[in-house]
Design a protein around this nucleic acid. Structure first.
Length: 313
DNA sequence: AATATACCCAACCGCAGATCC
DNA sequence: TGGATCTGCGGTTGGGTATAT
């Protein structure tokens, strides 16, 4: 059907932004707020297309942008998240306060991609600077949910053969509590708390168990789990809620201009969580229903897609 | 000092889901 | 309901800078 270009290219400035343009854009957004990007340049008096304005704001002018080098902790988190998510930079950026998807993407392409690739191509005993990175890689190495050629093999993730590069949204996700945890997971309660949008932090274990069940129910030894599937609306109950309730602080990674202490702690917690996720998968590598396992991963990916839930406050 | 090469990163591009009308 | 538009995303490009020769 063909789409009209986002804007007429004629008479528009291109290339690097000037300080004057930055000032105009910043001032306009301060007064009018974000959004309506298409009309913004005209209203603000900028000779730029809306897309360019949006990008400039998001990647450079936003007040919460964190400047400076990527810290080792951030680097580790990026590597781990990339292992889980692939090239879904916006999701990864959502877990790194003050960092933009573009920045992380650039950092990956110029530093980490090569580094990790190098690590992968060398002998197993060769290490990256971080032992925990090695641990993550090692964990993922032995994960194999696939027992037929059509299904997803997590071991491939270690080769960075990213399965899905485009983020897509799913409206629902199946969560199946592990049998041993059923008594903890009262779906009515969950529903009620969903409605009130409040998840008591005292239920951390319950919620994380639900997630664990989701990530691994294909491997349960009886098939009863399928009968216990609970259908949640991802917009109401999502991975991030589970994530955030599991380690509440990291869900709201806060950027502090004067110190990285706080976010550093949160980053460590995030990495611990990722380790647990990977460990959980690892522990359940004896799955019998690999197609379900594949679905599980897609569900996980979809949960992770609910970007709004990931975002820092 | 001049040139070549490598690297970094801001900006651009096109696609596709979400939303509007 | 379906087309038009908005918005966000990931991939790619190109200019500036650093380093090597």
């Amino acid at each position: 059907m063909g789409r009209s270009p986002c804007c007429s290219k004629e008479g528009l400035n291109r290339g690097a932004w000037t300080a004057q343009e930055d000032r105009i854009l910043r001032e306009y957004i301060r007064i009018h707020g974000e959004g309506k990007w298409r009309n913004m340049p005209k209203r603000a008096g900028l000779k730029r297309c809306g897309k360019s304005c949006r990008l400039r704001w998001l990647n450079y002018l936003r007040p919460d942008i964190k400047r400076g080098n990527i810290s080792p902790d951030e680097e580790e988190l990026i590597i781990r998240l990339h292992k889980l998510l692939g090239n879904r930079w916006s999701l990864i950026a959502g877990r790194l306060p003050g960092r933009t998807d573009n920045e992380i993407k650039n950092y990956w392409n110029t530093n980490l991609g090569r580094k990790v690739q190098g690590h992968q191509n060398t002998a197993p005993h060769l290490k990256l600077s971080s032992s925990s990175v090695e641990k993550t890689l090692k964990n993922t190495n032995i994960i194999n949910l696939s027992h037929n050629t059509n299904s997803l093999s997590l071991s491939k993730m270690n080769n960075f053969q990213v399965i899905r590069t485009k983020a897509t949204k799913c409206s629902k996700v199946i969560l199946a509590p592990q049998p041993g945890n059923i008594e903890h997971f009262d779906t009515e309660k969950a529903g009620a708390s969903v409605e009130s949008e409040q998840y008591p932090t005292s239920n951390k274990a319950v919620e994380f168990d639900a997630f664990k069940g989701s990530s691994s129910f294909a491997s349960t030894e009886n098939n009863q789990t399928s009968e216990l599937q609970t259908d949640f609306n991802i917009g109401e109950l999502c991975f991030s809620d589970l994530l955030n309730s599991y380690f509440p602080d990291s869900g709201d990674l806060k950027y502090s201009n004067d110190s990285n202490k706080e976010s550093s702690t949160s980053l460590k917690e995030s990495m611990m969580f990722l380790d647990e996720m990977l460990q959980d998968w690892t522990n359940n590598n004896n799955c019998a229903q690999s197609n379900v396992a594949s679905d599980e991963l897609h569900s996980l990916a979809s949960m992770l897609d609910s970007k709004g839930e990931w975002q820092v406050e």
